[in-house]
Design a protein around this nucleic acid. Sequence first.
DNA 1: TGTGTTTCTCAGGAAAATCACAGCTTTCAG
DNA 2: CTGAAAGCTGTGATTTTCCTGAGAAACACA
Lengths: 249, 249
Amino acid sequence: MSAMTTTSPQGRTELLRPDGSPVRVLVVDDELSITELLSMALRYEGWQIRSAGDGTGAVQTAREFRPDAVVLDMMLPDMDGLTVLGRLRRDLPDVPVLFLTAKDAVEDRIAGLTAGGDDYVTKPFSLEEVVARLRGLIRRSGAADRRSDSVLVVGDLTLDEDSHEVSRAGENIHLTATEFELLRFLMRNPRRVLSKAQILDRVWSYDFGGQANVVELYISYLRRKIDAGREPMIHTRRGAGYLIKPAAS
Amino acid sequence: MSAMTTTSPQGRTELLRPDGSPVRVLVVDDELSITELLSMALRYEGWQIRSAGDGTGAVQTAREFRPDAVVLDMMLPDMDGLTVLGRLRRDLPDVPVLFLTAKDAVEDRIAGLTAGGDDYVTKPFSLEEVVARLRGLIRRSGAADRRSDSVLVVGDLTLDEDSHEVSRAGENIHLTATEFELLRFLMRNPRRVLSKAQILDRVWSYDFGGQANVVELYISYLRRKIDAGREPMIHTRRGAGYLIKPAAS
DNA sequence: TGTGTTTCTCAGGAAAATCACAGCTTTCAG
DNA sequence: CTGAAAGCTGTGATTTTCCTGAGAAACACA
C-alpha cells in the first residue's frame, strides 16, 4: 500500500493513502493508558486508529481493519510478540511494524526483526519519536520516490529525518538526540506558537516527571547552535510559548 | 466532526458545523458558578451548551448530546479527570477536550494531555482565553484547510491566533499577552462598542480584584502600538466604552 | 573500567509584564 | 464659563517569566 503526502495551508504535512483516504494504524498494547495516549496522538496526525489489548484481538482487528502500519508491544499477556507478528504477517505480509519494547529487553531478538524494514522504540518513548518512526515506516513501505519528504525546511534551516542531519545556511550543525527532536517538533509546526506543555508532552517521554524548565534549557541550547550570531529563527512568545519561523520575515 | 465558519453581517465570525447547525459544547465542573459563567459566555458565541456537575453526569450527557467539544474540570467530586476522559473517549473518540486545572496543580499530572491535540487552561481563567482555546480545538478537530480562520482582519490590521503575530499595514507589532487578548476581543467584535465592564469580564480572569482603570491603561498601551502616528482605529465612546473599526470609514 | 557526552536540576539574575496610583486633560451639563 | 465626571498616561513597585552557568547524575562506548 503506497502513500502520498499533501501539505495543508497550515504548513503541516499529512500522510495520505493513494486514494486520498487517511492512513490506518493499529495500536497493540495491554496497558490501556498507552493505547489511549498513542491513539490520541496518532489521531491528531490525521490518521485512523484502532487499538487492541492482546495478540488475539490484534490479529482479529488487523484482519478486518487492514492497517497500513502496526504499533506492537512485544510484551502481551496472551502471546509472544513474535507469534503475533507471524500471524499478522500471514494476513498482511507487507505491513510495517513498529515494536515497543522495554528498555532492558534483549535487543538481539529485535535486531533480526528490524532487518525486514520494521523498526522499534523503547519504552518509555516520546510521542514525537513514535510518530516520526511511523511516518518513516509508512513512507518507505509505499512509493519509493518520496525521499524529499524526509527533509524539513524552514528558511535556510534544513533537517533531514532520515540521516538526522541539520544545517543552517549550508553549514552543518551537530545536535544531540533531544535537541534534534525538539527542533523537529518546532519545524513540523512552523510559525505556530507551541506552549511548553505541548513541547514537553510531545518531545519528552510520557513518564518524564521533571522540571518544566528543561524546555527552556533546550531552547537555550538550540539557540546557541542554530541562531548563534545569525538572524534568530527561534522566538519566545512570553506567557505563550515558542515558535520557529524563517529569519527573513 | 468538521466545522466551517460564516461571517455574519455584523462582522462577527461564527463557528458552525458542516450542516449549518450550531457547535455543541459540554461544560463539566462541580462549581455551579463556573458552569454558569462558562455557559453564558459560550452561548454568547452562538454555541449550544449543556453542562454537568460530575463525571457520571458528564458521560451520560455526552452520550446523548454528542458535543463537538468538552470543557472538563480535572477536579470532580466523583471521578478523577482522567477517568472521565477515558469514558468520554469511549463514546466520542475524537472529541477535543479543554481541561480546567488549578494553577498550582499544573505540574501535577497534566502530562500527555496536550499531546493528543487537547488543551488546558488554569483557573482562574479569562473567558476570552477559554473561548479562544475552544475555537482552536474545534477548528483543528475539523476540516484541516482553514488557515484563514486563525487570522482576524480589521482594515489593515491583522492578528494571527496561531503565531500570535499582529501587524498593521504590513508592519509587525509586538504585543504582550494581555494586550494581545484585549486586541483579539476588540477585533472579534469590530464596529461594536464594548463597555469597560464587558472588557474586564472577558479579558481579565474572573477573580480579578484590581482597579477598573486597567482597561483604560491597556487601551492606552494598544493605541501607542497600533494607532501611533496613524489614522486611529480604536475609538472611545465616552460613557459607553470602546470600539475598533477600519481607519478608512 | 574509564572517558567523554548528554541529560537534567538548581538557583541566581535579567528582563518583561502587570498593575496601582496620581496628576493631568478632555468632555459636557448647566 | 465652570465644575464634575470620565478618560488618559507617566512613574515606579511588584510579580512573573525567562535565560543560562555550574555541576551532578546517567549514559554510551571503547
